[in-house]
Design a binder for these strands. Structure first.
Lengths: 221, 221
DNA sequence: TAGCATCGATTGTTCTACAAAACTAGATCC
DNA sequence: GGATCTAGTTTTGTAGAACAATCGATGCTA
């Protein structure tokens, strides 16, 4: 007899973590922005203690940077960070794709994400295209059936989102990748996981180059 | 002009995180053990706030489990967790090995770890064998040149250590794997990364089975 | 202009306090 | 006997005040 599933439980602190995460991924807290304790205590109407605990959680996730005695600021990935992030993406995504069993249940989610992205692209809703693209890659990694891999990957992807926001990688730039997602999916479904991984590797390389290009244009390190 | 490298900086809290990490990996805090705030506040002579911040950090790393209103306890991986951990290890380690460039500088560290393990095994210092084994796999993942991948992998390996402690996987059981580490290294150095990855995959599968066997013998879920 | 001392602001840490949730141990009921 | 209820105790969640330590900026001196 399993005890109560305590999913509905929401401490003040965990909801603060959620709220901050939303603001970060929505870009309302800009990369590099200083987050002073006093201002956020006022803004969210929580105590310093609660806020600092939330800071530690998000810091460990890589979304916030904490420098002792200098406070915390929104992570601001530089080009070295972007390169590092794409190394992780290649290692994880390609590996998962190669090892995924044929007809993994979550492959359906990948297909759904591709369809959603195509429809959004047709409607020129680039924001939705970006969201669907994230869904595709999350669905891909979920085929590992590993909650830890999903968690690590999610953190890295959230950090990459900060990189996009920093140099204003416009959402419509993701459009060309919709078809390549389809290609990766087709190769996987066509029982060619090795080929699918090869396509994905090329995909990620091009994506990385595009982001680094945006950094160069923005004159950022 | 780079500012001061603030590596020597040690806030009270970060040193507490370090101390707790040591106790956890040394097994002085047993898996599943309840960590009450009052007792640890007394033991480490820190305030509740500082302790709770350290709890959040270690919780996010997976070493502590935090259940709202019930406090934190040392993570106590079950068989599902072990399976999950080995999925991550296979995905990360094999992927890194396949992609590592020929003659990566850190390959030397792998070789050193193998030598250290052999010497320790000859001296029947099984604890040192285990440490050297950890060094080998850390060196392997460091060939990814990705600090994020190293960080995620380190967290997973620390959690696996808790699993060992939980069911008392004896250190000398690692001995047979010393030669297999050598085999993986030889394949990599022999310009056969694919073969090295294949060997490592088998290695990890056997290792996983051994741990799960220990769980079964201990009557643990 | 390049240090350098000073001061104000921010963070690190402790302490106290109290509300809320969880645990404990009897008491009660079937 | 076992389950359930209840009241009291313990522990955690959160707020807030206070102070030390450090940082950053300001203005001064050479």
């Amino acid at each position: 007899m399993v005890p109560v599933t305590r999913l509905g439980l929401m401490t003040h602190e965990s909801s603060l973590v959620n709220r901050l995460t939303e603001l970060l991924t929505a870009g309302e807290l800009r990369p590099g922005e200083k987050l002073s304790e006093a201002s956020l205590v006022e803004r969210f109407d929580v105590s310093r203690n609660t806020l600092r605990e939330a800071f530690r959680v998000l810091g460990e996730q890589g979304l916030l940077q904490h420098i002792p005695h200098r406070g915390v600021s929104v992570a601001s990935p530089n080009t070295a960070d972007v390169v590092d992030i794409y190394r992780v993406r290649r290692a994880i995504e390609c590996s998962v794709l190669e090892r995924a069993p044929r007809n993994h249940p979550h492959a359906v989610h990948m297909a759904e994400a591709v369809e959603q992205a195509k429809a959004a692209a047709a409607a020129e809703d680039w924001l939705l295209v970006g969201t669907a693209n994230m869904s595709f890659h999350n669905a891909l990694v979920s085929m590992s059936d590993s909650v830890r891999l999903m968690r690590s990957f999610g953190n890295v992807l959230a950090e990459l989102r900060l990189a996009f926001l920093k140099v204003e990688v416009l959402d419509f730039l993701h459009a060309p990748f919709v078809d390549r997602n389809q290609g990766v999916l087709d190769a996987y479904l066509g029982e060619s996981p090795a080929e699918a991984a090869r396509l994905l590797e090329g995909y990620l390389g091009d994506s990385e180059r595009q982001v680094l290009g945006a950094y160069a244009r923005a004159g950022q390190a």
